[in-house]
Design a protein around this nucleic acid. Structure first.
Length: 547
DNA sequence: ATAGGGTTAG
């Protein structure tokens, strides 16, 4: 008997696939061990380890086998709770069954339960379990106390976290770190720093140091982040990544790059911090180069890195590069069913001019959400298929999706590109009346552009004057562009006058008006404008014209 | 005799 037991447990340890699990399950039944707590426990633990990634088939499998055990012991109950930590309701109902059984929950039980509440933001459940922890006399266990500190920190009740922390009879590095992280997540940097400074064994608490660096970065205090970083006794990849990310977000790519070169190791996350920095700071070409370099150093890109690459390509807009990235994504079995990845891929194909591919991807999605629709509508509108874009918006409404501000910006831009005056005005009304959205200056600028291009300069002017929001320079700018389009001197002068007040240093406004004058052969006026431009140190930067 | 736990970058 004991030999079969040790054979099965050895086999379990080397189990890699679901097929192996099924074979072992058969063997367990053959030997009449379905009621054997230890074997079933090992089996369930193995299921949990194989279920690190989505589709919870092995978790369901584990649960079905657990349900056949008549008298599970506390170990087995704890294992099945841990296996189902990704679902709060299942965990709670299992725990209720556990309480009704003859066995009693222990410290292991409660730390799993609290962790589950903390993952799922179960504030109410967590408080309830805190009460049970006290009643069951397990509050003194370090793991239980630490889980509670972590839980209260995550749900934003840092005072409760502090209370548990202060009352803990025994604390270790992890407890202290959880307390620091709790303060940091609420932005209470001072309290975090105080706890961090009092922390014993601080030199061997890398996670706490990294959390401090990350916290200062997240709350915008790059200097303090740097200070903590420089004081660290030992820095690992994470430490470097936190700070690289901070510099990248602040637009200081030189410092980011310098740190990156100094990092002891470079994993995908470190590379991504730098690459996304280049993307966000408008240096898409550099981002693509870095991506290639990363691949050459045998660092395998994950989904996050791929989204960065696709965003960079969208900015560059090269059709060839877009096709290459598309085939790269497909070859490397990146999960296209995840909406944000599919959205990035569709957006990239659309911006790179590969509309057929974009349409194909869009139609083949099992489900289309708002973001996906917006990418597609924008793609069509960029490529002069604005009528189709507007039609797609209607289809989106038919599917029951509710448009937001971004959706309307995309839609109104499409209308203005296609010269759909009536539709545009209707959608602006619908936005206010049907969806309760307040049009932003950008939305108004779209409509002004639309009216202006169609030659309704007066209507556009009236719209700007009647805007409930502060008229943004972009609305006036759109109108001035329209005045140039129709060579209208009267409106042009009036609008330009407003713009010279709003943004006296923007050269395109001067250039537009001077074009209008030139067209009417009013060369004295052109000359006078040139002088005004020079006096105000306004210089036209080549390629920055607004039209 | 035997099994299981809390913190950590994008």
């Amino acid at each position: 008997m004991s030999s079969i037991l040790s054979r099965i447990s050895t086999l379990l340890n080397s189990t890699k696939t679901i097929l192996h699990l099924h074979q072992l399950h058969a063997r367990i039944i053959q030997n009449g061990l379905e009621q054997h707590n230890l074997i079933i426990n090992l089996f369930i633990s193995r299921c949990t380890k194989l279920d690190a990634h989505p589709n919870h088939t092995t978790t369901h499998y584990a649960l079905s086998i657990f349900n056949l055990v008549f008298h599970p012991n506390a170990h087995l109950w704890n294992s099945i709770l841990k296996a189902n930590i990704s679902s709060l309701p299942i965990t709670i109902s299992l725990f209720n069954r556990f309480k009704l059984s003859k066995t009693t929950p222990d410290d292991y039980t409660f730390s799993s339960l609290i962790k589950c509440c903390s993952i799922h933001n179960g504030v109410w459940e967590g408080r309830l379990i805190h009460g049970l922890v006290v009643r069951n006399g397990v509050l003194g266990f370090v793991f239980v106390g630490t889980s509670l500190v972590d839980f209260y920190g995550k749900v934003g009740e840092v005072e409760s976290a502090r209370k548990v922390f202060d009352e803990m009879p025994e604390r270790n590095v992890v407890s202290w770190t959880a307390m620091v992280v709790g303060y940091l997540s609420l932005g209470d940097l001072r309290s975090a720093q105080v706890v961090f400074d009092e922390m014993p064994w601080r030199d061997c608490a890398a996670p706490a140091w990294n959390a401090m660096v990350d916290g200062y970065v997240k709350w915008g205090d790059l200097e303090s982040a740097r200070k903590v970083f420089d004081e660290m006794p030992e820095r690992n990849v994470v430490s470097f990544t936190c700070l690289i990310d901070g510099y990248a977000k602040a637009g200081d790519m030189e410092s980011a790059r310098e740190l990156f070169d100094r990092a002891p190791a470079r994993d995908v996350v470190a590379w991504s911090a730098l690459i996304s920095g280049y993307v966000q700071n408008g240096n898409a070409n550099r981002a693509v180069e870095m991506f290639v370099e990363m691949c050459n150093e045998n660092v395998k890109p994950d989904e996050f890195a791929m989204v960065n690459l696709m965003t960079a390509c969208s900015q560059i807009g090269s059709s060839d590069l877009g096709l290459w990235v598309d085939s790269y994504v497909t070859r490397n079995s990146i999960d296209l069913s995840r909406p944000h990845i599919a959205a990035a891929l569709i957006d990239m194909n659309a911006k790179c001019g590969n509309m057929d591919r974009a349409t194909c991807l869009f139609e083949e999605m099992p489900k289309r959400d708002l973001v996906l629709y917006c990418s597609m509508i924008q793609g069509l509108s960029i490529h002069g298929c604005a009528v189709q874009a507007v039609r797609l918006f209607s289809r989106m409404l038919e599917e029951g999706l509710v448009p937001d501000k971004v959706a309307f910006t995309v839609l109104l831009t499409a209308c203005s590109r296609a010269g759909l005056v009536e539709e545009g005005m209707q959608y602006l009304c619908s936005m206010k009346n049907d969806y309760g959205l307040v049009p932003s200056p950008d939305h108004y600028a779209c409509i002004v552009h639309l009216l202006g291009r169609a030659g309704h300069l007066e209507a556009a002017y009236d719209l700007i004057e009647s805007m409930p929001v502060e008229p943004h320079a972009s609305a006036w700018g759109a109108l001035l562009g329209a005045c140039r389009l129709h060579w209208n001197i009267k409106f042009g002068e009036m609008v330009a006058g407003k713009l010279f007040q709003l943004e006296p240093r923007n050269p395109s406004n001067y250039v537009l008006l001077s074009n209008i004058y030139a067209n009417a052969n009013r060369w004295t006026d052109v000359l006078e404008l040139r002088n005004r431009m020079r006096e105000g140190c306004v210089r036209k930067i080549p390629g920055q014209s607004r039209i």
